[in-house]
Design a protein around this nucleic acid. Structure first.
Lengths: 119, 119
DNA sequence: CTTGTATTTTAGTTTAATCTAAATTAATTT
DNA sequence: AAATTAATTTAGATTAAACTAAAATACAAG
């Protein structure tokens, strides 16, 4: 079960990282997760949850009509600590908001780097 | 300079991970890197090198008409160790080959998971 | 069995990433 | 200067990822 590549793929998107953060310390229902991300549909959240679960980054249990998701922190090892540092950083939160904003509105304004003086 | 997210973004693609592997232990010219990936054009490799460099995952120096790239292993921290484990694993190499094959040929055959018996 | 609530899945669209081919820049050699 | 070699950049095409809206599934309660 080659999992590492799947893990990296799963961590690639800001959306999935945000979901992971929401279920990092305590389980949440799919609905609660969606409520925390009002800019996407429930369906979109559900698809990302499935990707995270297939990558082994979250697990879930069903109870009544609800499904509770929680992070499988042990699957990330030291990378998990990196994520925690990222989330603890207040500046990071602002950056994330900007990132999601961009994700919503289309491609970046392409801040191209100057081509000269690169030795 | 919030770098972590850029790092995760940069590690998202198998192609960039393969490039990173090639320059992990010793520097390589852009041309040598391209030769190791005969299924893409030099231009494509150059673009990915730029992305890796902008994310701080590789650095480069120009000498004569060549440009030498090498990994900035210190920028990756724990993720670097994860990558090394991945690359040391023989099975992983087969998997990577298959992954690149897929990348080349189009989307996956979509092996859907059965929907029942999920408690 | 019908209604309500929670969630997932499907089909199709939109958005973003990656690639190619060709043009361009840059240094080297003749 | 012209030709050669190495690498980058651009514009446009292709491929893949993410999203939406609607339909489907699942369970609970009346």
């Amino acid at each position: 079960m080659n999992t590492q590549a799947a893990v990296l793929d799963a961590l690639a998107s800001p959306r999935r990282r945000e979901i992971l953060r929401l279920v990092w310390r305590e389980e949440q229902t799919a609905g609660a997760i969606h409520q925390a991300m009002p800019d996407v549909t429930f369906g979109a959240v559900s698809l990302q949850l499935r990707r995270l679960e297939e990558a082994g980054l979250v697990e879930s249990r069903g109870e009544k009509q609800f499904r509770y998701y929680r992070a499988r922190r042990e699957a990330l090892g030291p990378v998990g600590e990196m994520l925690e540092r990222m989330w603890d950083d207040a500046l990071w939160r602002l950056k994330l908001a900007a990132e999601l904003e961009q994700t919503r509105r289309g491609p970046k304004p392409a801040p191209r780097q100057s081509k000269k003086n690169k030795q």
